[in-house]
């Protein structure tokens, strides 16, 4: 396996007394699709935001392509982000812009692509997420939740980033569209050689897209292994999660 593209080393992040990440170690290499599982509120989204520098870790290191970017600022941070695509759990579409302007945002504003050309590219990318050209001139508020998610996905991958974060890519989608999104994620990794970290609660999706699966629990990665071994993990927490049982070692912290 090649050197990791992204590495989190012993990352710690708290909000007041809420100790969300208590020492997360994780890494992902090019051409590898990593799926992170974890209960609701376990800090999966916070982990991705910390990796991107949207939140600063209290302690630990973030290494991207061999460089320590934990406290990177200015140009270094921008260069790093130009190589990363992020699908936010909430979509986070710009509601003042049209759908195609959202999708083509980076092309227009950072890469200096002409608007007409950027629009073509946006429509092409929308097709990959099973959205027709008719949505291009709508506002995000005029779309359903699942459609917004796919527009956000198109925005994240339009520039073919080296590393993509997918925060619950298939949540809220029907099974057929969800499977098309799975194929798209696989395509990013296998055909384009990107590295991907996906967060999902959808085990069917996880089994399909993951090369490796990791589980985040109580602020740490408690298990990590090849996707093929997810049913033979030997870890009670993982078993309970994978099989979706209410009773087991993971109990809601009330």
């Amino acid at each position: 396996m090649s050197a990791p593209l992204l590495e989190l080393k012993d990352v710690i992040k708290s909000f007041g007394d809420n100790h969300v990440l208590r020492g997360v170690d994780i890494d992902v290499a090019r051409g590898c699709s990593l799926v992170v599982l974890g209960g609701s509120g376990s800090g999966k989204s916070v982990m991705l935001k910390t990796a991107l520098g949207l939140m600063t870790p209290d302690d630990g290191k973030i290494i991207f392509d061999g460089a320590d970017v934990t406290f990177a600022g200015g140009r270094e941070r921008e260069e790093m982000r130009a190589r990363i695509g992020m699908l936010f759990q909430s979509g986070a579409l710009f509601d003042s812009l049209m759908v195609w302007e959202n999708v083509a945002f980076r092309l227009i504003h950072s890469d200096g692509v002409k608007r007409a050309e950027a629009r073509e590219k946006a429509i092409e990318t929308l097709r990959k997420v099973h959205l027709g050209p008719s949505v291009a001139d709508l506002r995000p508020a005029e779309l359903s939740g699942g459609m917004q998610k796919r527009v956000a996905l198109a925005r994240a991958i339009i520039t073919r980033p080296d590393l993509v974060f997918f925060d619950e890519p298939t949540t809220g989608l029907d099974p057929i569209t969800a499977d098309a999104i799975n194929d798209l994620i696989l395509d990013q990794v296998k055909a384009l050689g990107a590295a991907a970290i996906s967060i999902t609660h959808d085990m069917a999706s996880a089994r399909k897209i993951a090369d490796e699966i990791a589980m985040l629990h109580q602020g740490r990665i408690i298990w990590r292994g090849p996707a093929s071994e997810i049913d033979r993990s030997g870890n009670d927490h993982v078993d309970q999660f994978v099989n979706g049982r209410a009773h087991g070692p993971i109990q809601p912290s009330l």
Binding site: L52, M86, A92, L93
Partner: peptide, 10 residues
């Protein structure tokens, strides 16, 4: 959306 802007290098 502000976070999204940052990730899109704006």
């Amino acid at each position: 959306q502000i976070d999204a802007l940052k990730t899109l290098s704006a």
